[in-house]
Design a protein around this nucleic acid. Structure first.
Lengths: 196, 196
DNA sequence: AATTTACGCTAACATATGTTAGTACAAAAG
DNA sequence: CTTTTGTACTAACATATGTTAGCGTAAATT
């Protein structure tokens, strides 16, 4: 057959990663086979290995791509001179936008990271923990400054992150409200629920 | 080897289902093998088939067990003469309690249902949809009666259900706050975020 | 135009997996 | 005690899976 079609200076490897994210999201990492991936890419399974080292490389590329973006976002938010509530709102909006526009990748990173192999697994978990701590610290700061209700910050982080990852169902649903509307609803409930 | 040990008039099949839920939760349905399950049950893989029909039977037993409990709970809540907010609080408390006390089973039903086979898959999805609709209807009722902020009820349901399923992370975490405290925190944020 | 590189193919591998067949023996029922 | 039933075992199966080896050809480089 012909070669893998690329577009806009993305490499063939990028194409494979993109399709892998879609497949892993749909079937789950373990249930998705390299032969299936090959088929959606339009090539034989063995040919994939001219571009990637292994199936698990695909997973860790996807996961760390997302993790890196989150870290950069956190750096940015922390450096801003805004109120805690504004910071939280910015984080939540960023996460929602990620869920809406980079859905497959974010979803896979969220749900399938446990199939990472060492040392990537430990590394990923550490980043995840660190990132949640930073989020919790912002909330605690807001509580100290009396902008935010007195609640357990760890629980609040947990609620917000998981509520957002629930946008998955929104993707599945037929009677979709639009993305912007979804975002405003979530801000109302999540951020509104914190405000003192 | 010896036989599967049962206790308190639970059948050997029940023991297998329980262990299967633990294993499916830990490894994911696809990644968990019957040989692994056999090992934790303390028996050879082939012996499991004296008690169950197939691996996928295990999954659908787990999923429908949870689904049935949810439906019963919904029936009960709907029949009560309480305010919408009280109904919502009751649902949320029920769900949190389920997450805390029947963790493995609920987790599997939440995350692994997509590996159900037909006709169970369609049936399960239908029940899930119905159950969410009922939940949303309660919220809409509360909005109509001005107990609840004017928000999109579907989004609110989505947020609450996923926030609760995030208790998974609470199970993993070391510095666990206690279950009751977690529950109160979640009620504050989730139900508090709805109140007008 | 000649050479090198990139990339696709077929074939095959080793292993893992769900499941069945057939057998032996312990527990329960009579 | 004898019979029947339940339950565990070993062996084997068919299939699916990730991956590698080796080869040919189109694309890129010189």
């Amino acid at each position: 057959m012909g070669r893998i079609k690329t577009e806009n200076n993305s490499s063939r490897k990028d194409v494979i990663i993109k399709k892998a994210a879609e497949l892993f999201k749909e079937k789950g990492f373990k249930a998705a086979s390299m032969r299936e991936l090959a088929e959606v890419v339009g090539v034989e399974a063995a040919s994939l290995y001219n571009h990637i080292r292994s199936k698990s490389e695909l997973l860790h590329l996807i996961c760390f791509n997302v993790a890196n973006r989150y870290n950069l976002m956190m750096d940015e938010v922390e450096s801003e001179k805004t109120t805690s509530l504004q910071k939280i709102e910015k984080i939540v909006r960023f996460l929602i936008a990620g869920m809406v526009h980079n859905f497959e990748e974010v979803y896979v990173s969220d749900r399938e990271w446990k199939y990472l192999t060492e040392p990537y697994l430990s590394n990923f978990q550490a980043q995840r923990r660190a990132y949640r701590k930073r989020f919790a610290a912002i909330i605690e700061d807001g509580i100290k400054k009396k902008e935010i209700k007195k609640i357990d910050s760890t629980t609040a982080v947990l609620i917000m992150l998981h509520a957002i990852s629930g946008i998955e169902s929104w993707h599945r649903s037929k009677e979709k409200i639009n993305g912007k509307e979804l975002e405003e609803n979530m801000i109302t409930i999540l951020v509104g629920g914190l405000r003192k």
